[in-house]
Design a protein around this nucleic acid. Structure first.
Lengths: 235, 235
DNA sequence: CAAAACAACTTGTAAATACAAGTTATAAAA
DNA sequence: TTTTATAACTTGTATTTACAAGTTGTTTTG
């Protein structure tokens, strides 16, 4: 347990506090020197933790002022969901794991190009269905290379995000990615999963997320019911 | 000239070298210690520069190995179009101005919130239809506040992008923005404009682009025919 | 010859220290 | 009272030093 670096512990702590609302939007974090004495570290270490929070978009530093907390759903460039009615504070209320993580070979008709290492490592496959206000809105099919992920298939993902598990247990961070978007007619399977009304189209996404580990990319195919909600992104 | 921090100078230099191809994709950058002695800085300073490059996605660091150069990200967030067939080099071959820029009041059912200054300034309104390979794919409705845009309604937009005119003639730069995406059934008007097949859904986007001029935001409502093409973005 | 051990690299983490520069509230001066 | 100066904060930049940990090629050993 002690092989987790100090700066990372502070980062996790502050991150949790921001997300759980200990610090609210617009609040100032304790100053760097205060954090130093409170956690018995030196300023470079504290700054390393804060820089990581800046990278996540969770805080915003201002010289002479302090570290300002930004609102948590400040999506990491990636994607978030905005309800047409209640735009603020929407969270995934429930996540069903339709397919627990299993190791298998990459699909033959996989829509992304793979590196040799990824190809020969095989992949971990999982499917999720996510709900907002007890309505299914999000069906995603995920493939990740089976590279150095001990006990991954035994982990529980019920109330944790996939990214959270990768970050906390395997130190894998999302750096960026690319995505392709289309509006399509749903297949029968998708229509049933998302409880789509007849004729209701679905937002289709293919995304490749790159990480800090070379050759470790996360591939997702996502179907989104955009009848009552919308995909929201800022850049 | 000397108030530019050292780490930033090194960052700019390496960035230029990566983009210009001095280092190619997959190459290793000089090691941190080599950079130290070459540029007469200490390792923390060099590391600061490298961290900035990592944040940009231009390099990827690997412990025990070195700093690996990645291919420069093509577009920073906004949006581009990827043909399913010919993915590279797709351009808008033609742009029709359906509605030349006109000054009017903001619509009553405008889907964005406006500041007081924007509200009372009135807006400039224009509609465009854009083609790829002589097929209409892109129908956009644009509103911008009528703030300090002399002779704007007299300008020609035939072969210039709206952004290009704003940048070159009015020094207005896009800083960022937010967007909302949905898959919807097209209205009769949209179906006819985009030559949509019966039952073909359409990708609907609302975007607000922020600029370097305060209170000057560009609001677009976009309908995209995603039958043969997809919206492509990287982040 | 093959495997293990080692040496020489690489980046990662962390300490202690110093000064520069921006912000803000308070105290002094007009 | 209003303005200006100052002091006490804040974060930004930079040096120096030390050791940990991952990678790779070479040498030694079986």
């Amino acid at each position: 347990m002690d092989n987790v670096p100090q700066y990372r512990k502070l980062y996790e702590l502050l991150r949790k506090h921001i997300i759980n609302g200990v610090y609210r939007e617009g609040d100032l974090l304790p100053s760097e020197n205060e954090l130093c004495s409170a956690h018995e570290m030196t300023r470079p270490t504290v700054r390393h933790a804060l820089e990581t929070l800046v990278k996540d978009g969770l805080i915003l530093k201002k010289q002479g002022k302090g570290s300002i907390v930004r609102k948590p759903p400040q999506n990491i460039g990636i994607l978030s969901i905005a309800g047409t009615a209640s735009a603020v504070g929407v969270r995934y209320l429930k996540t069903d794991i339709l397919q627990k993580p299993v190791v298998q070979t990459w699909p033959g008709d996989f829509p992304f190009e793979l590196s040799d290492l990824e190809q020969e490592s095989g992949c971990i496959y999982m499917e999720r269905l996510r709900y907002v206000e007890n309505e299914p809105v999000f069906y995603d099919v995920n493939h990740l290379p089976n590279i150095n992920l001990p006990r991954f298939t035994q982990r529980s993902f019920e109330n944790k995000s996939l990214f959270e598990v990768l970050r906390k247990n395997y130190q894998i961070e999302i750096l960026g990615g690319e995505q392709k978007l289309k509006a399509v007619k749903p297949t029968v399977q998708v229509r049933q999963l998302l409880h789509l009304k007849p004729g209701q189209p679905v937002l289709y996404m293919e995304r490749k997320l790159t990480t800090n580990k070379e050759h470790f990319n996360i591939y997702s195919t996502i179907y989104f019911n955009s009848e009552k909600h919308a995909i929201f992104g800022s850049f």
